[in-house]
Design a protein around this nucleic acid. Structure first.
Lengths: 227, 227
DNA sequence: AAAAAAAGTAAGGACAATCCTTACTCTTTT
DNA sequence: AAAAGAGTAAGGATTGTCCTTACTTTTTTT
């Protein structure tokens, strides 16, 4: 079997986590003598952007990215999460495999990251042990994708209900659940207040909710796994 | 020098993190031959409570606890965070040294954890590398307390402003910043709506804010490090 | 390509939450 | 005893939300 060297970028603002990833790669290449890794780690959006642009310009190769979603935003405020970085990577470096790794475990976020990035790996940090990390690496290299337990569970919930709600419904529910006001929604969504109200009424009808305020709606939406 | 064995409990729901802690303890006891550790790890509130109660009942010794704040809540909903566990530990096992370790890096939370738990160590996860973790262990054993970079920076900000705002002001700002409505605040705070409004007006006056809605107030409060 | 259905917008009125003012009570300070 | 500080209570003004109706635009069906 021929030798292969993979180049890896780890984007995560927790040094203990990046260290754990590195350890896993080390271990893996010891078990598989023909495979080695060249690993870089970055801890914020600005440096990540610099590295991605550099790789693109110099036509270097990047095989694998581990991507945390919650990161300190860039100084100019343009890149506010790992999701934005992922979009950039998909655009500039389409052959790079992205493994999303996050603490978010609510359906809405996982779902929207899936749609926007379509990653080759998706890990919820609560799920993964050092051992599972090594399995992840193996799967990513030989037979992607790899999704961790919680992700698979959320995806299953999703499939059963997916025909009902679209992205905008989901976003409305999500925004309401974090306390956004109706009057502020038109600047977040491409819809008028009247349109949003119509959708809300539709959702309440769908879920069989009579109450006038939104608590019950959000409760049921959470229960059904939409947020 | 006599031998000493410390008993340690690690409470954190991320296996990669608990593993990193363990590795640090291992390393430390290899460097210090007279010191050994007996380490347990737990990943949720329920199991933690069981362990704490067991240690208390059987009058066992617990020297050091690493305590994550954001944890899956207990099934009966009574313990909703590591802070609650910390209170229990302080009460039942007053000689146990608590090292809080969390991803929260906003002033309000750090401040309120300080007041409620008065921990011997306080780590923001973004700050700590494997190397710093070993220093932490050394400091905790020989000369506590140990606070990581961000914590010290937040504490300094605090001191300069502390005379201005009390706990309730802080809590009002915090609740508003996460979207809580005025009408719901009286059930969270020991104050009437009128009283809360009065305080809000007072705060706006203090910060020199003319605008009628709360965005600017919350912005300035964040800037000044109150939330 | 016309008709029907679905989704969004606009404008109005009813209702509820927020904000502000004034007047009163209670506690602490001077 | 007076003054200052903090909270409560009740009102009215203002703003946000919800709902209805009528109209426009887009999509689907035939």
């Amino acid at each position: 079997m021929e030798n292969k060297k993979y180049s890896v970028l780890i984007i995560d603002d927790h040094p203990l986590i990046t260290e754990a990833y590195k350890t896993a790669f080390d271990y893996y290449s010891k078990q598989n003598e023909n495979i080695t890794f060249s690993i870089d780690t970055v801890q914020d959006c600005d440096t990540s952007m610099d590295m991605i642009n550099d790789i693109f310009k110099k036509k270097k190769v990047l095989d694998i990215v581990f991507l945390d979603i919650k990161l300190p935003p860039s100084k100019d405020g343009k890149i506010i999460s790992g999701e934005d970085l992922g979009l950039k990577i998909n655009k500039l470096l389409p052959n790079t495999k992205i493994i999303v790794s996050t603490t978010f475990n609510d359906n809405y976020r996982v779902h929207s990251i899936f749609k926007s990035l379509n990653p080759d790996g998706f890990l919820i940090k609560n799920d993964i042990t050092p051992k599972e990390l090594i399995e992840t690496i193996d799967t990513i290299i030989n037979d992607p994708p790899y999704y961790s337990k919680t992700v698979i569970r959320l995806l299953r919930k999703q499939v059963a209900n997916d025909f009902l709600l679209d992205n905008i419904d989901r976003k409305i529910l999500y925004e309401l659940s974090i306390g956004t006001r109706m009057k502020d929604l038109p600047s977040i969504l491409p819809l008028s207040i009247a349109g949003i109200e119509k959708r809300k009424r539709h959702l309440k009808h769908l879920f069989n909710i009579k109450s006038v305020d939104d608590r019950e709606l959000l409760l049921v939406a959470k229960e059904k796994g939409f947020i």
